[in-house]
Simulated scan of single mutants.
Amino acid sequence: NQEKSNPHTEFHHQNLIISLLSLFFAGTETSSTTLRYGFLILMKFPHIAERVQKEIKEVIGLHRPPALDDRTKMPYTDAVIHEIQRFSDLLPIGVPHAVTKDTEFRGYIIPKNTEVYPILSSALHDPHYFAKPDEFNPDHFLDANGALKKNDAFMPFSIGKRICLGEGIARSELFLFFTTILQHFSLASPVAPKDIDLSPRESGVGRVPPTYQLRFLPL
C-alpha cells in the first residue's frame, strides 16, 4: 500500500492520534479530576464557595446558564479556579520534550536529542511568585483592586510552543462546570471543614484528590 509506505502520511496519522489523545486527556480527564479536587477544597473553605456564589448571582443570576463571556466579569471565580489548578498540582511532571540542538542553560550544555522533563510543580509552588505556595489562597491571582492578574509561574498545562493542546478546552470546561453547579447547589460534607484532609493521593505520575463524600444541596 503506497499510502502506508509514505513516511509523511505515517507521521500525520500518528500526529492526529496523539493530538486527539491530548485533547481527550487534558480537556476531559484532568478537568473531571480538577472538579473533584475543587469541590473538596471549597468544602474545606466554605467562605470561598459563598463568595463565588455571590459573584455568580450578581453577574449571571439564577435564571440563565453561565456563558464563557461571563468569565471576564467574574475575577474572583476565575482566581479560585486558577488557584484550584495551582494548588491541586495534578501533573507535577510535564510530558517529556527533546532538545533539538545543543543548548546552553545556566552554564550547562544539554546535548541535542536529550530528553527533558519539565518539573511543573516547582513553578506552581515557587515562593517568589506565590506568597503562600503551600496554602490555598485565591489572592495569588488577584491584584490590589480585585482584578484577575497574570502570574508567569502559573503553568499547569506547561508553557511555550508545546503547551498542552487541551488547555483551551479544559479552561472553558472548568469555568462552565463550576459556575453551573454552584449556581444551583451548595456543597455539604459529613466532615467538619477543619477535619477535611486535602492531601493528594498518588496515581502514577499524577495526583488525585483523596476519597470523600459530598452532598449537593439545591439552593
Rank of each mutant, 00 (worst) to 15 (best):
K150E: 11
K150W: 02
K150M: 04
K150V: 03
D152C: 08
D152T: 10
D152L: 13
D152H: 12
A153L: 07
A153H: 10
A153S: 13
A153K: 06
A153Q: 01
M155Y: 00
M155A: 12
M155K: 13
P156N: 13
P156F: 07
F157M: 13
S158P: 09
S158N: 14
S158M: 11
I159L: 15
I159A: 15
K161F: 02
K161A: 15
I163F: 02
I163S: 12
I163N: 06
C164Y: 01
C164D: 11
C164I: 05
C164M: 04
L165H: 02
E167D: 11
E167K: 13
E167M: 12
E167R: 10
G168P: 11
I169A: 14
I169P: 09
I169W: 01
R171A: 02
S172I: 03
E173A: 13
E173M: 12
L174I: 11
L174C: 08
F175N: 08
L176W: 07
L176R: 10
F177K: 03
F178S: 08
T179F: 06
T180K: 09
I181G: 03
L182V: 00
L182A: 09
F185E: 01
S186D: 05
S186Q: 11
L187T: 00
A188Q: 14
S189M: 05
P190N: 04
P190Y: 01
V191E: 07
V191F: 05
V191R: 10
A192V: 04
P193A: 09
P193L: 06
K194E: 15
I196R: 10
L198P: 01
L198D: 01
L198K: 07
S199Y: 03
S199F: 01
P200D: 08
P200G: 13
E202D: 11
E202V: 10
E202K: 14
S203Y: 09
S203K: 14
G204I: 00
G204C: 05
G204K: 08
V205T: 14
G206H: 04
R207A: 05
P209H: 07
P210W: 03
P210V: 04
P210M: 05
